[in-house]
Design a protein around this nucleic acid. Structure first.
Lengths: 124, 124, 124, 124
DNA sequence: GTGGTCTAGACCACT
DNA sequence: GTGGTCTAGACCACA
């Protein structure tokens, strides 16, 4: 049981929702290094979406360095820690979000607080 | 002259790129409260995209509380400072980004540093 | 008219055959920088394969830095000249091929001659 | 001990990886004419893959003229030097690789240099 | 009109 | 059994 939740009425693509849920699962230690994810068919069955959509999510995760896909054991959590690249990506992803906050008078300290709340969810 | 740069080969939708550039412009004080944006037609002409695309970007900005659109004065920068809502939105936007970083062993301090760099770009 | 030839009885995946034909087309200057490829639907029609298969080929080409995909103009030849990466990739691709030749007593000079023949096909 | 390394998370089929490693072994003179390869079962045991997979690799090698398989002596390195055929095969294998390089502005001289590096690895 | 997404069902290669 | 490939047809976002 993976406890993945998909919101079919969201405008976010299903494969991206699944990808996000799995990243959140890794961050919160529900999924750990070396653990196998269900096969594309099982996962599709479990959360009620198509096999190919699951396949796409798994391939995105592979390209982002979160899993390895292995013909013997299926898809396995394997986080590739390329920190330099990860930091660069994060900076780009933060750019507009922080700009938005800056416009709305959100202070650096307030952003720090949000970061702390989120880190708390993941590390505990 | 707005100095808006659009990357036509990006996977990001053109209207979102335009929306982002305008938010960045406000954050860096190039665009200030009360300033008029070019008309939909002028902006479309200037950056070489379709009028409808500009229109969509302006409407998104209105809905997000960055501009007001009125028939007489066109589209005017008018940041609506609803901080509570802005903070909630930011937290949701940060959630997966921070999870991703946490998986890649990026520490809270390192995220703080990125935030600082970005705030520096906006405040100076 | 693209003069793409697909061998349906080959064991090479259709999308890879298409990808190869397009790379050969660029190398022989039949396709040049900035030229649009037919839309996925047109190309699929023309060569008698499924739209999604064409789509996959185009996406592989994008990832390898041969085309850009643009929602306005479709898929456009745009060779990204990252020579360092291209050289590394080529070395890996050559490794087993050259090993094979070496086993079969093919000399360096003979490989040079093959290279020359192929370059001749492309440059003239 | 064969010092064969298999990457289980590679997209390359395991039998092809094994086949490649053996060709590389022959080229670098670690395996020499007349030498026996481990039995299918031993090899499978040693590198942790399925017996059928090893069997497939050995059969491919036989068909390509690198080994002979016989009931009494098992699988023995026996390079068949059909140079004409080997040259033809190599030309086909090089075609797309060289086209790719040509697109990326890799010169003939640069390819020569790569060839030299690889030959150096094999001949010394 | 373009590509992107999603579904569905089939066959195949590999293990 | 696994994922990879291919086909087919539908709907949607974007321009």
């Amino acid at each position: 049981m993976m406890y993945i939740e998909i919101d079919f009425s969201s405008d976010e693509a299903l494969y991206m929702q699944l990808r996000n849920q799995i990243i959140l699962g890794i961050a919160t230690s529900r999924f750990h290094q070396g653990m196998s994810l269900p096969s594309v068919r099982q996962m599709a069955e479990e959360i009620g979406i198509n096999m190919h959509t699951v396949n796409k999510a798994y391939n995105v995760l592979r390209q982002e360095g979160f899993v390895k896909i292995d013909r013997r054991h299926g898809t396995v959590i394997a986080v590739d820690e390329n920190k330099v690249r990860a930091l660069e990506e994060m900076k780009e992803e933060l750019r507009v979000i922080i700009a938005k906050g800056s416009c709305k008078n959100i202070s650096r300290k307030e952003v720090y607080a949000l970061i702390d709340e989120l880190y708390f969810e993941y590390s505990e």
